[in-house]
């Protein structure tokens, strides 16, 4: 017994080391809820305020380019008003008037990363601005990410440049759909999988968000085909796509509020049991 205690006092630090490594691995494996619940509100509020200060001082140097982009964006949005209403109609008696299906909440990216395997960005809008988890986020040029955690004034979003991000996309030409998944290498390129090989594609074709996603409206730009190969294992294309969003200069973005989300989720949940 005494020997055991002696041994423990001599090599106790090794036990401590093993214990702490185990804790660290536990934290990694539950990364899907990467914030500990206790810390979530507090840390995102603190780091959010810090990054806000940093980005405020940086704002002035980028005003001109930013204004041009905004003007462009406004023009495009105006043209899009009709289209974002077009999916749902009031009753026939009222004469098939389109009603609004999507609302856009303008916000700015105040912290962003592109160098990790799992990248996130923070936006300067939160609960009190109407941001909710799982809202899509788009930039003037294309899709940017999905809202993950929300505090009162800030929200942390999963970037398209995140190896655990996947979204359904389709070819603008033929509407064949596949899945956009990032391989973790370059912030300018991503990969589209699961488009069958009978579909004719060529470099330069545009990919857009598909109608099957309740996160993004249909038809938002995703990227342009750069090159493609055929996966010999499953016979689907592996397509290298140049992303239209400039993730290294992400600034003005819009959170997409799908006004019929609750209704769609409710009816889809109601048959969930039958699927299993």
């Amino acid at each position: 017994m005494q020997n055991l205690l002696k041994l423990l006092s001599k090599f106790g630090f090794v036990l401590l080391f093993i214990l702490l490594e185990a804790v660290a691995f536990f934290l990694i494996l539950r990364r899907s809820n990467y914030h500990l619940v206790v810390f979530t509100e507090g840390t995102s509020e603190i780091t959010g305020n810090f990054f806000m200060l940093y980005s405020n001082t940086r704002d002035y140097f980028k005003l001109r380019a930013e204004n041009e982009l905004l003007a462009e964006e406004n023009a495009r949005l105006r043209a899009e008003v009709q289209y974002s209403k077009s999916r749902f109609y009031t009753t026939k008696a009222e004469g098939l008037n389109p009603i609004q299906a999507y609302k856009y909440i303008p916000c700015k990216v105040i912290n962003n990363s592109t160098r990790y395997a799992r990248n996130f960005f923070t936006i300067d809008a939160g609960k009190i601005h109407g941001i909710k988890p799982d809202m899509g986020v788009i930039s003037p040029n294309g899709i940017a990410g999905v809202v993950r955690q929300v505090s009162n004034r800030f929200a942390v979003c999963i970037s398209v440049l995140n190896t655990s991000f996947a979204v359904s996309v389709q070819l603008r030409k033929s509407k064949d759909y596949g899945s956009l998944e990032w391989d973790g290498v370059s912030p300018f390129y991503s990969t589209v999988k699961y488009i069958p090989t009978h579909v004719e594609i060529e470099p330069g074709d545009t990919l857009e968000t598909s109608a099957y996603s309740s996160i993004f409206p249909e038809g938002i730009d995703v990227g342009v085909i750069e090159s493609f190969t055929i996966n010999p294992d499953d016979g689907y294309y592996i397509i290298k796509v140049r992303l239209t969003t400039h993730f290294t200069a992400l600034r003005q973005v819009y959170a997409v509020d799908y006004l019929f989300r609750k209704e769609q989720d409710a009816i889809e949940d109601s048959i969930k049991n039958e699927r299993q």
């Binding site: 702490l20 490594e21 660290a24 691995f25 934290l27 990694i28 990467y34 990363s113």
Partner: peptide
Amino acid sequence: YDLIYNTGGAHAA
């Protein structure tokens, strides 16, 4: 640094 960079426990490990 894990809490700041959102990396789970990778920095800690």
